[in-house]
């Protein structure tokens, strides 16, 4: 699903290799937030490697066109620590943005009616326990709520690969448990779906039932026993 082959990027990776297999759940812990942010940019192809290769869904992302890359990104759900919401769109518009953009691009609107989309959105929001007003702008919301909206937005796309960036940071125990439950259920919902938790803190590792836990140290990934 995702593979690093001798990936090198100054300040982050030194001929690093890493493999994400279908259906598995992974944790990658970096030493600093800076490394985590840079690694996230590599995973989402916002930053290119100095050398080596990254394969996502069996495609070498260094040699594909921008529209092909967007096709790949469409299959990835990324939950950013700050939510990654668009500040001039209301909460519900943020939630629907990728889904309605890609649906109308592929003329899927006939199969996914507005009512269906709305039902789907409400269902996911109730699963993660978000019950606030959806018609407000996200600016004044606390970061964790923005993150929950970002999580719901990513889930709505039903991606094959989920990447969570410090998703549990700063959550109260009950919200954390609810998110953990929703994330675990969501991981199992689609056959072959892989999940990757990216963080610079190790405190959550025991809660996530990951197949493999990797530490990024001195530019390489080391699997923790």
């Amino acid at each position: 699903m995702m593979k690093f082959e001798c990936a090198t990027l100054k300040g982050l990776l030194e001929c690093a290799s890493f493999n994400i297999l279908e259906g598995n759940l992974y944790v990658v812990v970096t030493e600093t937030d800076f490394e985590k942010n840079l690694l996230l940019k590599v995973l989402t192809v916002l930053t290119r490697l100095d050398s080596g290769k990254v394969f996502i869904f069996d495609r070498d992302v260094s040699s594909i066109s921008y529209s092909e890359l967007n096709g790949i990104r469409k299959r990835m759900g990324v939950v950013l620590n700050n939510g990654g919401l668009v500040s001039n769109l209301k909460v519900w518009e943020n939630l629907m943005l990728p889904l309605s953009y890609h649906a109308s691009r592929n003329q899927e609107s006939t199969t996914l009616s507005n009512k269906n989309l709305e039902d789907k959105m409400i269902n996911i929001l109730s699963r993660i326990g978000y019950s606030d007003d959806l018609s407000v702008l996200p600016g004044p919301l606390p970061t964790y709520k923005k993150r929950l909206i970002g999580l719901a937005r990513a889930m709505l796309m039903e991606p094959d690969l989920m990447i969570y960036e410090s998703v549990f940071a700063g959550l109260s125990p009950d919200v954390r448990d609810r998110v953990l439950e929703a994330v675990n259920v969501f991981h199992r919902e689609k056959k072959g779906r892989a999940s990757l938790f990216l963080d610079s803190r190790e405190s959550f590792i025991d809660d996530v039932k990951a197949e493999s836990v990797y530490m990024l140290k001195k530019g390489r990934f080391y699997e923790r026993s």
Binding site: L46, Y66, N70, G71, V78, G84, L85, L97, P98, Y101
Partner: peptide
Amino acid sequence: AELGAMNVEGEIESIEIMGID
């Protein structure tokens, strides 16, 4: 101002991450 603020806040990158040009 709007595009500048979106850039500073990383919103343009998050739009790209969603596969939106």
